[in-house]
């Protein structure tokens, strides 16, 4: 009998703690599969953020370090410089990577750190119960923008991957989603390339993934996917935004 699907050895047996309809779990699976397929599990140091995915060290089967909120990229830099032979990635929410840790993200990109950041953008602070994020949409109601995000006083959502394309040391930048089977395939392809860029020692690689938060958006899991498709997608540049020069240079 031919087996057509098995659980990846890149993930532990521990059940995810994520809410129903949350796409953090799908993203975990893609990373777990790639760690396995690229034979990286024993060679990897992962860095967990603070946020809903702050317990992801329980799921990934590689060695993991838990960072403080916003500092995953600095921790990963410290680890990678200590062990340049290891594969080092960060897993971060949008608050972690684009607000409190924005300086770390930009600076690591500028230095061309040989690490990979997986940036999970759900337009909200999930962990703390639905406050406004740097990525929240104009008009989006959150517990700290109860009348909707007002652009005049609260600004605009930050399209971080687009910004990063401007930085020389960020050699691979992709912005993907996991809202359909096709999108999941594309996301995995982007992650694989990002991982390979690090293995080839080319520089900083960054994959932004649009993700759902039905709990704090106040919608059902099915509505959450629609919200992502109709509300989020128009606000963020999507696609492979920058590829290494060896692949024909920037597509931006």
């Amino acid at each position: 009998m031919k087996s057509i699907f098995t659980k990846t050895t890149g993930l532990s047996d521990r059940p995810f703690h994520y809410c129903p309809g949350c796409t953090h779990g799908i993203i975990h699976r893609l990373i777990g599969e790639l760690l396995e397929e690229m034979n990286l599990i024993e060679n990897t140091i992962g860095v967990a953020p603070v946020g809903c995915s702050g317990f992801c060290e329980n799921y990934f089967m590689c060695d993991m370090i838990g960072a403080a909120h916003g500092r995953a990229v600095a921790v990963a830099t410290g680890a990678k410089r200590a062990r340049p032979d290891r594969f080092v990635f960060t897993y971060q929410g949008d608050g972690d990577g684009a607000s409190i840790g924005l300086a770390e993200t930009m600076s690591a990109a500028a230095r061309g750190e040989r690490i990979t950041s997986i940036f999970v953008n759900n337009c909200i602070y999930g962990m703390t119960g639905g406050q406004m994020a740097p990525t929240s949409l104009v008009g989006q109601k959150t517990s700290t923008s109860p009348y909707g995000r007002d652009a005049m006083t609260m600004g605009y959502p930050l399209d971080l991957p687009k910004v990063l394309t401007q930085i020389e040391g960020a050699v691979y930048v992709a912005s993907v989603s996991v809202d359909t089977p096709q999108a999941i395939k594309e996301a995995k392809k982007a992650l694989r390339k990002a991982f390979q860029v690090q293995r080839d020692g080319l520089g900083y690689s960054f994959v932004s993934i649009l993700s759902t938060c039905p709990t704090n958006w106040g919608v059902t899991p099915v509505e959450a996917l629609e919200w992502l498709q109709t509300k989020m997608k128009p606000n963020f540049t999507l696609g492979e935004l920058k590829v290494p020069a060896t692949e024909g240079g920037s597509e931006a």
Binding site: A68, R71, A74, V75, T77, G78, A79, R81, A82
Partner: peptide, 11 residues
């Protein structure tokens, strides 16, 4: 936090 990362790796 870079110190934290390198120390966590054992160096």
């Amino acid at each position: 936090y870079m110190v934290y990362g390198a120390g966590a790796v054992g160096e």
